[in-house]
Amino acid sequence: MTLAARALTQLATWPDLTEVEPSCGTGRALASAHGEIVHFHSDQDVDLHLTARAIRRFEDHLTSARAVRLVPGSQWVTLHLEVSTDVDLLMTLVSLALQAQQTWPVPGDGPRPRCNDQHSGTLPRENLSGS
């Protein structure tokens, strides 16, 4: 079983998540009552909707995590699952994403932006810090 398959199997048991068709049309997705949370695009690549506010709040932690890739201006983060601790990080971030959607809703939020799979590429943390 791949790391992404293991993560999807675990997350599918969470009571706040339901499997849905991904809006991007690629892979499999899980959503909460507030919208899509996570897209599994391949055996290693996962996009997670955190909200812009959550990304700003935890940016230092996100940019220091080797598995995390950010796209400037995107409310989604991409995780590249290579080791089991990357799955643990994904579980933590999904929990954070669920809390962000429930705790920090932004009045008048429009339609959810597309996931990072639709962007030409994600930037590794080194590029975000200007290094």
Rank of each mutant, 00 (worst) to 15 (best):
T63V: 15
H41V: 03
L48R: 09
F40C: 10
A65V: 02
F40D: 09
R69K: 12
V71L: 14
A65E: 15
S42W: 09
L70D: 00
H39E: 14
R57S: 13
G73L: 09
L50N: 05
I55C: 01
V71M: 13
F40K: 07
E59T: 03
F40Y: 12
D45P: 00
H39F: 03
R69H: 13
S74N: 04
G73Y: 08
H49D: 09
A67D: 06
H39T: 13
T63C: 10
D47V: 04
H41M: 03
V38G: 06
D47E: 06
D43S: 14
R66Y: 04
S74K: 03
H61K: 09
Q44V: 15
F58R: 13
R66I: 01
L62Y: 08
R69E: 13
S42H: 11
T51K: 03
G73C: 10
L62S: 05
V46Y: 05
I55V: 13
L70C: 02
P72D: 12
A67P: 05
Q44H: 15
R53Q: 14
S42V: 05
A65H: 13
W76H: 06
R57Y: 08
F40S: 08
F58V: 00
R56Y: 06
L48I: 08
S64I: 00
L50F: 07
D43G: 15
P72V: 07
V46N: 04
A67E: 15
F58A: 06
R57L: 14
F40V: 13
L62K: 04
L48K: 08
H39K: 05
A52K: 09
F40L: 10
R57G: 01
A52M: 02
R56M: 07
T51R: 14
T51L: 02
V68P: 02
H41E: 09
H39L: 06
V46T: 07
G73S: 10
L70R: 14
L50I: 05
R56L: 12
S74Y: 03
F58G: 00
F40T: 12
Q75M: 02
R69W: 08
A54S: 11
V38W: 09
T51Y: 03
S74H: 03
R69M: 09
V68N: 02
H41S: 10
R66A: 11
R56D: 15
H61I: 01
Q75C: 04
F40P: 11
W76L: 05
R57W: 08
R57F: 09
V71Q: 13
V38D: 04
V68W: 01
V46E: 05
L48Y: 10
R66D: 11
H61E: 14
F58T: 06
D60E: 12
A67M: 07
R69C: 01
L48M: 09
I55R: 04
F40I: 13
A67K: 04
V46K: 02
R57P: 00
W76N: 04
F40E: 09
S74Q: 03
